[in-house]
């Protein structure tokens, strides 16, 4: 449903994303991983329409959306969350979610009802009237997710929704992400928590220094030499192979 074809983004002399391609199948969870500074978030902002690519095309549901601004992409069904959560601090939780819900429900009562049902789904129903600024980190991550879901997307872009959560909060979040997928929303996620990526994603793309270096099923990616090198440094894959028992020679 989403296909990114050899997209490049230059910031002055820096090539942040270098001819990267990826695809997201309907109803799937696709992962986008890579070392720090690989260009994952830049690629995300290109897909969400916050930046225009220097070259390449982005096709969503059969239409070329490369030139569309962010709000028009949201209308078409692409929602995103932010790596650094961006709540409307002056608004309550339910009002925050309602801003997203207004996209498909122009009437206040409908938008509020939609916001409540999304809040319910994400376990935010106990704090509807709290100020968004008063939420915990985990609460804000859920709010970020709730707002995006309230726009009723068909493709959800998750930028490190698990970052900053403790292990038990991550355990609580994984089934939520699966449930969103089961409701028919395709998900593309940037994530550093590898356990989560390996257990959630059906397909993974690996970005390093702006280039796509590998893609495939989680198991293939975990043993892919290029991926190991990108994460652990040049020659790491060979050294690991030379010592298959793992660390015996150290």
């Amino acid at each position: 449903m989403l296909s990114v074809a050899s997209v490049t983004k230059r910031f002055g002399g820096l090539v942040a994303v270098d001819s990267a391609s990826l695809a997201v199948a309907p109803g799937s969870i696709t992962g986008l991983i890579g070392p720090n500074g690989a260009g994952k978030t830049t690629l995300f902002t290109l897909i969400a329409g916050f930046e225009q690519p220097s070259s390449g095309t982005i096709v969503f549901d059969g239409t070329d959306i490369t030139a569309l601004p962010a709000h028009r992409r949201a209308e078409r069904g692409i929602a995103r969350t932010f790596q650094i959560v961006q709540p409307f601090a002056g608004l309550s939780v339910v009002e925050n979610i309602a801003v997203g819900a207004y996209l498909r429900h122009p009437r206040r009562a409908d938008a509020q009802a939609k916001a409540r049902s999304v809040a319910d789904f994400l376990g935010l129903n106990g704090m509807l009237d709290q100020s968004a600024a008063a939420l915990t980190v985990a609460g804000r991550k859920r709010l970020e997710l709730a707002r995006a879901l309230a726009t009723e997307p068909t493709l959800l872009l998750l930028d490190e929704v698990l970052a900053g959560l403790n292990p038990s909060e991550i355990r609580d979040m994984l089934p939520v992400i699966r449930q969103i997928r089961d409701r028919g929303v395709a998900i593309l996620m940037v994530e550093h928590v590898m356990q989560a990526v390996m257990s959630l994603c059906e397909h993974i793309h690996v970005l390093a220094q702006g280039k796509m270096i590998a893609q495939g099923k989680p198991a293939e990616i975990a043993s892919h030499p290029a991926v190991i090198e990108a994460y652990l440094g040049q020659g790491a894959a060979k050294r690991l192979q030379a010592a298959p028992s793992g660390g015996a020679h150290a």
């Binding site: 969400a48 916050f50 601004p69 962010a70 709000h71 028009r72 949201a74 209308e75 929602a79 995103r80 969350t81 932010f82 961006q86 709540p87 409307f88 601090a89 002056g90 608004l91 801003v99 997203g100 996209l103 707002r147 995006a148 309230a150 726009t151």
Partner: peptide
């Protein structure tokens, strides 16, 4: 007023 980027992401022109 609160956050223009977040507003754009939610489909606000």
């Amino acid at each position: 007023r609160e956050n223009e980027d977040a507003a754009r992401a939610l489909g606000v022109d």
